[in-house]
Simulated scan of single mutants.
Amino acid sequence: MGDIAVEILLGISFGLLAGMLPAIALGVLHAIVTSVTDRGVPASGTALLALPSVGASASYADVIAFETDLAARCAVVLVVGVLLSVFAASQGERIARTLPRNVGAAVRPERTLSADAIDGIDGLGQVTVRPASRVRDLEGHPPLPPALRTRIADDSWRFPADLPLSEIASRLEATLVTEYDLEAVSVDIDPQGRATIAAAPPSKALASRLRADHRAVSVRAIAPTGLSPGDAVVVHTNGLSVDGTVLDVGAGPAETDHDGTAAGGETRITLGVPTADAGELLGVDRAHVVVTSDGTTSAFEAFRALSRAGRSVRKVLVGEGDPTELRSDDVDVLAVEALDGGWLFAPAHEALEPGRTAFVAGTTGSDVLRRFDARRHGDDGS
Results as ranks from 00 to 15, higher is better:
residue 263 A to Q: 12
residue 181 D to L: 10
residue 159 F to R: 12
residue 115 A to N: 03
residue 231 D to A: 10
residue 50 A to V: 02
residue 64 I to T: 15
residue 1 M to H: 13
residue 187 V to D: 06
residue 66 F to D: 08
residue 309 A to N: 11
residue 132 A to K: 02
residue 255 E to L: 06
residue 202 P to H: 13
residue 75 A to S: 14
residue 374 A to F: 06
residue 157 W to M: 09
residue 208 S to G: 08
residue 44 S to D: 10
residue 347 P to Q: 04
residue 80 V to I: 12
residue 92 G to E: 14
residue 124 L to H: 13
residue 180 Y to P: 04
residue 120 G to W: 01
residue 280 E to N: 08
residue 34 T to Y: 12
residue 223 A to V: 14
residue 271 L to G: 08
residue 154 D to F: 00
residue 151 R to K: 09
residue 312 S to C: 03
residue 274 P to G: 01
residue 124 L to D: 15
residue 285 D to T: 12
residue 195 A to W: 00
residue 364 T to F: 02
residue 147 A to C: 03
residue 49 L to I: 08
residue 160 P to R: 12
residue 32 I to Y: 12
residue 143 P to R: 12
residue 59 S to E: 09
residue 48 L to I: 15
residue 361 A to C: 02
residue 290 V to W: 00
residue 76 V to D: 11
residue 5 A to W: 09
residue 131 P to F: 00
residue 8 I to G: 04
residue 62 D to Q: 14
residue 4 I to A: 15
residue 173 E to N: 08
residue 365 G to T: 08
residue 56 A to Y: 01
residue 308 R to E: 14
residue 240 L to H: 07
residue 372 F to C: 07
residue 2 G to P: 07
residue 232 A to M: 02
residue 211 R to I: 04
residue 358 A to C: 05
residue 4 I to M: 11
residue 217 V to C: 08
residue 238 N to V: 06
residue 327 R to Q: 14
residue 219 V to Q: 12
